[in-house]
């Protein structure tokens, strides 16, 4: 399998990359790690005439806490999340997800920016970002703008990103004491896109009462799905088994799965329910909640 011909450009800066995108309207695609784009091109399902490689741009690869945010550069490799002590110790939701994106080799090329802005409902990081309340810094010909993750995803492969824009940074609210998250993913086999996956991020007070909740779902709809009712149902509670079950049911209701090779829709709803219960349980205990 061989990609069709294209012209490759290694951009030296974000502005140069934006210039290339603007100069080749409708024909240019950003190449970061290439782990989604190159397979599509080999299958000849995508045939951009111009590829703009942003992986050589200095300072697009970092994971650090800055002010109120954990900021992650768009070209950061997914495996850098796995290797990051900061992520491992303070952002368990991200750590869970990063360990289950594709396979370890793909994670060495695939980037955080690519995963969050590709727009495939099977990508794992978007649900994490929605649950975490993250926002994306996007730069285009007119400069920077910030888009909340929950507003970013519009349809399958359709995002708030304009073709002339580049996502440069992911900003996640800085972990505070009493926060915790979990990402549970059910796959047909390791390395697969999810049958369904659930991201849960909770904040609890000293008594273990939930003060903030985010729940989002992977691969059970045209895009990542926010499940605000499920999240809201946990607020002001030290969630009991019945509360967790209720949250699971609300998440299942929020899912919009279709029947496919991964299973029928009602099964996927059932999986969402189960994974939500379990992820919420884990997130609550990671946040410091105790029975």
């Amino acid at each position: 399998m061989i990609p069709p011909e294209f012209d490759y450009h290694a951009a030296g800066s974000v502005d140069e990359a934006i210039g290339l995108l603007t100069g080749n309207p409708g024909e240019a695609k950003v190449l970061a790690g290439g782990q989604s784009l190159i397979p599509l091109m080999k299958l000849r399902l995508a045939s951009p005439k111009v590829l703009v490689d942003i992986s050589r741009i200095a300072d697009l690869s970092y994971i650090q806490e800055k002010g109120d945010w954990l900021v992650i550069g768009a070209a950061t490799k997914v495996n850098d999340l796995n290797d990051s002590k900061l992520v491992g110790s303070s952002y368990p939701l991200l750590a869970d997800a990063a360990a289950h994106i594709a396979d370890p080799l793909v994670r060495n090329m695939g980037t955080v920016g690519g995963n969050v802005c590709h727009g495939d409902p099977g990508n794992d990081l978007p649900a994490c970002m929605v649950a975490l309340g993250a926002q994306y810094v996007v730069r285009g010909p007119k400069g920077n703008r910030t888009v909340p993750a929950s507003d970013f995803y519009q349809d399958t492969f359709v995002t708030a990103l304009d073709p002339s824009e580049i996502l440069t940074e992911v900003q996640i609210p800085k972990a505070q004491p009493g926060t915790g998250g979990a990402y549970l993913k059910m796959e047909r086999k390791v390395g697969d896109f999810a049958i369904a996956a659930v991201a849960v991020q909770l904040s609890v007070d000293a008594k273990g009462t939930v003060t903030r909740a985010g729940i989002a779902l992977t691969n059970v709809g045209p895009t990542v799905l926010n499940a605000p009712k499920a999240a809201a149902s946990l607020l002001k509670k030290k969630p009991s088994d019945a509360d967790l079950l209720a949250a699971g049911k609300l998440a299942a209701e929020a899912a919009q799965p279709t029947s496919d090779l991964r299973g029928p829709a009602d099964f996927k709803r059932g999986v969402v329910q189960t994974l939500t219960q379990r992820a919420a349980t884990l997130a609550w205990s990671r946040a410091g909640g105790q029975r």
Partner: peptide, 23 residues
Amino acid sequence: DTTHCGACTVLLDGKPVKSCTVL
């Protein structure tokens, strides 16, 4: 051909990657 099997694995700056999915 679809980045699943890893028969094409090489080390890129010391890290294993699938060389069928790298230009």
